[in-house]
């Protein structure tokens, strides 16, 4: 068992977990300290960044220049403009992309689309890891294998179910509360929850099952039920993994196109940014000036999410499963 999951962290670790060896960890410098390593890291970082950087730079270049010269010519002939962004975001003309509305939709889809599977997966992962019942392993294997059911094949049956059972409900909701449009996010949320669950359960199970059995046994001896163990021990200890997975799920939902194509209505009521961007790309070949700026607009939120939750990565997804 590794010590990682239980390295004390004042915010997330409950008192009953024994403090471990942080001070020594700080003292010992154990990197592979060689200049070559640093150079290699730098090279990888640069290679990985250049494509995005090129796109970023292009998004600020005048439209006709994007088409005719490479973005690196910027360094010899610097010409920048905000025109692409202002067209994509604020232009009031009917043919402009008007991404603002789709931006709201993306948020309204991505937040519940992350929270719902996350909560359900936490519950299920706990059950698989710490509740003993017949057929536990078999069930877990089935859930794991479900990861590979191709999304494409699940679309039609799911849509059929939604049309039969969810649509009357949506209409009723709209009639009761006219505020809420008849075109709702609900099907998209459920679809994302379903498609995100197998991987979420698999990853969280890996972390949660690595929590030492004695901690849980001790709580049990004290008379704690499953509910208490789940809330007082599992959730705080698994927080880094949960946060890490939340980031990934958020990114997947935010960047999804296929689910949106089928389950959102495609109108500004519910369609997310990706759907709009795909339309922009579609009609007139390569409209680089719009695509580049649009791509960066859609990138902002994922980056903010990553920055704000990044500290959890230090402890990280699956860190607890690191054992020999």
């Amino acid at each position: 068992m590794s010590s990682v999951a239980f390295t004390p962290d004042p915010e997330v670790t409950p008192d009953e977990v024994a403090p471990a060896v942080r001070t020594r960890a700080d003292r010992v410098k154990r990197r592979l300290t060689s200049p070559w390593a640093t150079i290699a890291a730098l090279v990888i970082a640069v290679v990985w960044t250049i494509p995005t950087f090129g796109l970023l730079l292009s998004s600020f270049r005048p439209a006709d220049q994007i088409q005719t010269t490479g973005w690196w010519t910027f360094f010899s002939d610097p010409q920048l403009t905000l025109a692409n962004y202002s067209e994509v975001l604020f232009s009031s003309s009917a043919s402009s992309p008007q991404l603002g509305e789709y931006f709201v939709n993306s948020l309204a889809i991505a937040i519940p689309g992350t929270l719902i599977p996350l909560v359900l997966a936490c519950l299920a992962a706990y059950a698989f890891a710490w509740v003993k019942f017949k057929g536990s392993s078999t069930l877990f294997v089935i859930v794991f294998a479900l990861q590979i059911v191709p999304l494409q094949m699940a679309l039609i049956p799911l849509l059929q179910l939604f049309v039969t059972f969810l649509q009357p409900f949506q209409t009723a909701l709209h009639e009761a509360v006219p505020f809420i449009s008849e075109r709702q996010y609900l099907p998209v949320w459920i679809a994302h929850a379903i498609f995100g669950l197998p991987l979420a359960i698999f990853l969280l199970h890996n972390f949660i099952s690595a929590i030492p059995a004695d901690v849980i046994e001790a709580a049990r001896v004290d008379g704690a039920g499953h509910g208490q163990i789940f809330f007082r021990i599992i959730l705080p200890l698994a927080m880094p993994a949960i946060a890490s997975f939340a980031i990934f799920q958020f990114l997947w939902v935010w960047n999804d196109l296929l689910v949106a194509l089928v389950f959102s209505t495609g109108t500004p009521d519910t369609a997310p940014l990706t759907q709009r961007l795909a339309e922009l790309a579609g009609s007139r070949g390569e409209n680089w000036e719009r695509l580049t700026a649009g791509a960066f607009v859609s990138l902002i939120i994922p980056l903010i999410v990553f920055f704000s939750l990044q500290r959890y990565f230090v402890r990280g997804l699956l860190a607890g499963s690191a054992k020999g």
Binding site: L159, Q160, F162, V262, T265, G266, E279, G282, S283
Partner: peptide, 21 residues
């Protein structure tokens, strides 16, 4: 009249018809 355009129409119309929507 609410118009929805999609570059994926050819595939999506199949999906929607088969999905009952």
């Amino acid at each position: 009249v609410v118009y929805e355009g999609s570059a994926e129409f050819e595939a999506q119309i199949n999906v929607r018809v088969q999905g009952g929507n």
